[in-house]
C-alpha cells in the first residue's frame, strides 16, 4: 500500500535531540553537512563519524529505522563508490581492461561512502526527531531577515506547512481512489510501461480534483478566520533557546575547529 512509504517520518519522543530548539537542529544540520564535505583525511573523517554516531544514539530512535532510511540510497552509494574506486589517479595496483585500481581510488571510495551515509543518517535524525511544524517554524524564524527585501517568508512557510500537513491525507486519498478503481476492474500492475502510465489516469485525475477542492476549502476556512498573512501575527508556541542549545553551538564550533585543524595540519588522504 502507498501508506507504507516512509517519508521523513517523525517519531514523537523526549530525547536530547527532541528537546533541542528546531533552529539549533537546522543550523547544526546544515553546518555538519558542510563539515562532512570538508573532511580530507582520516582523523577528520573519524570526528564526523563520531559526531554522527553520538547524535544517532542521543535521538533515542531504534537503529532499524535508520537502516531503513539507508536502504533507499543503497544503489546510489554503490554506484558512486564503484566509480570512485576505479577512477582514482596515481599508480595502479591492479588493472584489468579499463578498470584501474589505485590507492587513491580506494581512499576516494571510502570517503564518498562514509560521507553519503553520514549525510543520510543526519538528515534522518533531523526529520525523525523534529515534527514538520517545528521545522517550518524554524525555517520561518531563520529566514525572517529576508522580510527586509520583501521576500514573503511567512507565506512561504505557511505554504510549506500546509503542503506537509496534507501529505498523509493525500496518500490516504490515493489509496481510497485506487481501491475504488480496482473495484471497477482497473488493472494497475500489468502491461508495459505505456499501459501502466495510462492506467494511472483514472487515479491521478480524481486525486487532482480532490486536491484542488481541498485547497479551495482550506483557503475559505482560513479567510473565515480572518487570516491575512504574517504581519502582526503572534504564535501559540514561541521558539525559545535554552542552555542546551548554547552548549550545542559550542560543541558545533569545536567540531568545525577540529576538522579544519585536521585539514590544515595533517596530510590529505585524497
Amino acid at each position: 500500500m502507498v501508506r507504507d512509504v516512509a517519508f521523513g517520518q517523525y517519531f514523537p519522543g523526549n530525547s536530547l535531540m527532541h528537546r533541542l530548539d528546531p533552529r539549533t537542529k537546522l543550523i547544526g544540520f546544515v553546518a555538519l553537512i558542510a563539515v562532512i564535505f570538508c573532511t580530507f583525511n582520516y582523523p577528520a573523517l573519524a570526528i564526523v563519524v563520531g559526531v554522527t554516531a553520538f547524535l544517532l544514539l542521543s535521538s533515542g530512535i531504534p537503529f532499524k529505522f535508520y537502516l531503513k532510511s539507508l536502504k533507499v540510497i543503497l544503489i546510489v552509494v554503490l554506484i558512486t563508490s564503484l566509480l570512485n574506486l576505479f577512477y582514482g589517479s596515481g599508480e595502479p595496483i591492479w588493472q584489468w581492461w579499463i578498470l584501474k585500481l589505485t590507492w587513491n581510488g580506494i581512499h576516494r571510495a571510502i570517503f564518498v561512502t562514509v560521507r553519503i551515509v553520514c549525510l543520510i543518517l543526519l538528515s534522518s535524525c533531523l526529520t525523525f526527531t523534529t515534527s514538520p511544524t517545528e521545522l517550518t517554524d524554524a525555517i520561518e524564524r531563520l529566514m525572517k531577515p529576508l522580510n527586509k527585501i520583501h521576500f514573503p517568508v511567512h507565506e512561504i512557510a505557511m505554504m510549506m506547512s500546509l503542503a506537509l500537513r496534507f501529505v498523509p491525507t493525500l496518500l490516504e486519498e490515493t489509496d481510497k481512489i485506487m481501491q475504488a478503481q480496482k473495484a471497477r476492474g482497473a488493472d494497475l500492475d500489468s502491461g508495459n510501461f505505456i499501459r501502466r502510465a495510462k492506467a494511472l489516469v483514472p487515479i491521478l485525475i480524481p486525486l487532482f480534483v480532490s486536491a484542488f477542492r481541498r485547497a479551495y476549502d482550506i483557503a475559505t476556512a482560513m479567510e473565515c478566520r480572518c487570516y491575512r498573512g504574517g504581519t502582526g501575527r503572534t504564535r501559540m508556541k514561541t521558539l525559545r533557546m535554552s542552555g542546551r542549545d548554547a552548549a550545542c553551538f559550542v560543541a558545533l564550533a569545536l567540531i568545525i575547529c577540529g576538522v579544519v585543524l585536521c585539514d590544515i595540519f595533517l596530510k590529505a588522504a585524497i
Binding site: 481510497k176 481501491q179 478503481q181 473495484a183 471497477r184 476492474g185 483514472p202 480532490s210
Partner: peptide, 28 residues
C-alpha cells in the same frame, strides 16, 4: 472476481475521472 462482486465505495463520486458521464460509466 471484482466484475462478479461489484463494490460501490463510500462517497463514490470522487472516483469519476472521464470526459463524459457515458465514458465513466463504461469504464468498468
Amino acid at each position: 472476481i471484482r466484475f462478479r462482486v461489484g463494490m460501490v465505495f463510500q462517497y463514490p463520486e470522487y472516483q469519476l475521472f472521464e470526459e463524459t458521464v457515458y465514458k465513466d460509466i463504461a469504464f468498468g
